[in-house]
Design a protein around this nucleic acid. Structure first.
Lengths: 366, 366
DNA sequence: CTGTTAGCGCGTTCAC
DNA sequence: GTGAACGCGCTAACAG
């Protein structure tokens, strides 16, 4: 029997100290049922004399509601997920819920484990940004619903599954960004980064397929890029798509390699922060000026993008809003209980294209 | 009686299905006590036939251990706290603990509330980055210990209190940074930002005192700055200290104002990210080049600092390490139970001065 | 080794 | 209105 700690006073102790029955104490302390003003005062007095605090754990096993939601993301230190987490806890805490947040480092095993942990701790709902992509390897996403725990997907859809989700319109965002680059006169646009396949890709179809096998949002961004190229009838150059492991270092190398091409890109679209910093490094080392020699557009607007030299043109994602809406959707599901109500819904938030000074007309080669 | 959900199977149901006593089922499922291999198999089979999952909540009320720690920070979307949170959950989850993370937006009330919530949810320990400063207004920091819940302070000490804590050596970091600036030939160094007092300050003593009344880490950084000035026998110019609300906008205004001074700073030490971006904005608008016309050193090294034009010299804080060590300290306290063992300890981590290209000799005025 | 029984702290029904 | 008594799901003595 574990209570190695300075015993926290229980409701019974308070009742005893107040000279009333346990139930009466429970009613006043729990704020339900009827209790006379006089009794209430006695109980309340005894309660804070003893420093009584409700044991929410015990309450939860009794009521079946923990007032806790689970949040599982790839990496809480990533400002994107940090913003999302803040949005979530804003609306959650306003409604009396707290968040148990777990990071998975994009590992499916850890994600599975995270879901199990959350289910076992009886959270009232889960918000999850899954690393899963194929409709296989998603058994763990069934579990919560089997246990009656609402689940909403965040930032990343899973193609085969019809689940609640709140995401960004990545495809439209990428299409917009690429189109702007094209409008500025660019036709050779580096895409940093594409699917993390190691092998060289020969055909467009392979590329699209590879993207589909990996992270959904990345695939969407690539598709948007392709859309824009198609719109302008610009042929796809597979050498302009970064493949392989997605790290800043790899981005650096990919850009450096592209720059050495005969048909080197005159612009780069960087779909993530690390992709952007890697690209920036490469451009600096290549001695290329932005935007006179090469243009650039980034994803994930951060405070520093505006303060760069030159200020960077970016597509901004509404991180807080993403979190807020996911939390709202989840809470509404929690409210309606197992009343197997509405069908799953996917909400898609718009991004904003922030025009600054890193895009200029393509240099006219002599 | 709440169970509005698709009932999760209980240990009793598993026992029944397996045709054994509840205790036997409990033992095998709980992994304790003795149980024959044959029985175990029967139980295990029944368990996963029913899809049994331990209710950790119930287990916790029984054992008094929740395997959950509370983390309260000002703002989880701040990359600094995000990094810290990741460090914490790394070591915590390796030991089977999960983190309930709450953001307070630097509001003392929310901090107090957060601590109450965590205590009520019976977390096994708390890591907290407090907005409190004076030794008054810290009653809420007593509560956990009264309830036998270990608490470790993170990133911010509270002068009057002797509690476990893991922090950065802010004073040494600021002293180092300022000294570097001085060594480069600067004597008029803007400090962005100082204490958030609205009024103009006339004397150094007032300044130090004002700093002391506010955030500890800010006070330390200011003190380090003062140390460096003293070391070099450079008189303090109060006009070079930013006062007032700490926002990017205010930093912008403060720097702009300082730049208009007869004795304008030739260098700036920015003690936080927003202070840095605000300063950068102001310098750009003033048309001043870095580092030829003005030098700059920032705090909170971020990936983008290296990719700026020019690359920024920064003092880097070991965020992950901060989180990891806080978690380790907390877990060790949890391990030793209420065995009122070791006295509180404060660990102080060193920062790293990253020299890049935003510091140059002070321009020699004609 | 197994099953019985009594807790853990709180919610809730149901006579008094 | 009030309090005794039982249930939530699990742990843990204790007999057998």
């Amino acid at each position: 029997m574990g209570k190695p700690r300075p015993s926290a006073p229980t409701i019974s102790e308070v009742a005893a100290a107040a000279g009333v029955g346990r139930a009466t104490a429970a009613r006043t302390l729990g704020g339900y049922g009827y209790v006379s003003a006089e009794m209430r005062d006695r109980v309340l007095a005894a309660a804070d004399a003893l420093g009584y605090r409700t044991n929410q754990l015990a309450r939860s096993v009794s009521t079946g509601v923990s007032h806790t939601i689970g949040v599982v993301v790839a990496d809480i230190s990533n400002p994107f997920f940090g913003g999302v987490a803040l949005g979530i806890s804003e609306v959650a805490s306003a409604r009396g819920f707290d968040a148990l947040v777990l990071s998975t480092a994009e590992h499916l095993e850890e994600e599975i484990n995270a879901v199990n942990v959350l289910v076992d701790k009886r959270v009232d709902g889960i918000i999850l940004s899954s690393a899963a992509c194929a409709a296989d390897s998603t058994a763990h996403l069934q579990l919560p619903n089997e246990q009656g725990i609402p689940l909403v997907l965040l930032d990343r859809l899973i193609p085969g599954l019809d689940l609640d989700a709140v995401v960004i319109d990545n495809r439209a965002a990428a299409r917009h960004a690429t189109t702007e680059l094209i409008a500025a006169g660019h036709s050779r646009i580096g895409f940093i980064w594409g699917p993390p396949v190691p092998e060289r890709i020969e055909y467009r179809r392979e590329l699209v397929e590879a993207a589909g096998r990996n992270l959904w949002s990345d695939g969407e961004r690539l598709t948007g890029y392709l859309d824009a190229l198609d719109d302008a009838a610009i042929p796809l150059d597979l050498d302009h798509i970064m493949l392989g492991e997605k790290t800043e270092m790899r981005a650096y190398e990919a850009v450096t390699r592209m720059l050495a091409l005969d048909a080197a890109p005159t612009a780069f679209f960087c779909t993530e922060t690390d992709a952007l910093t890697g690209t920036l490094h490469a451009l600096r080392d290549a001695g290329l000026a932005i935007p006179s020699q090469v243009s650039i557009v980034g994803f994930d607007d951060s405070s520093w993008a505006a303060v760069m030299n030159p200020p960077l043109t970016m597509v901004r994602q509404p991180m807080l809003e993403l979190g807020r809406q996911a939390a709202e959707l989840l809470l509404s599901r929690i409210d309606s209980g197992a009343g197997d109500a509405e069908p799953p819904m996917q909400r898609e938030l718009e991004t904003e294209f922030i025009e600054r000074e890193s895009v200029a007309p393509a240099p006219t080669h002599s």
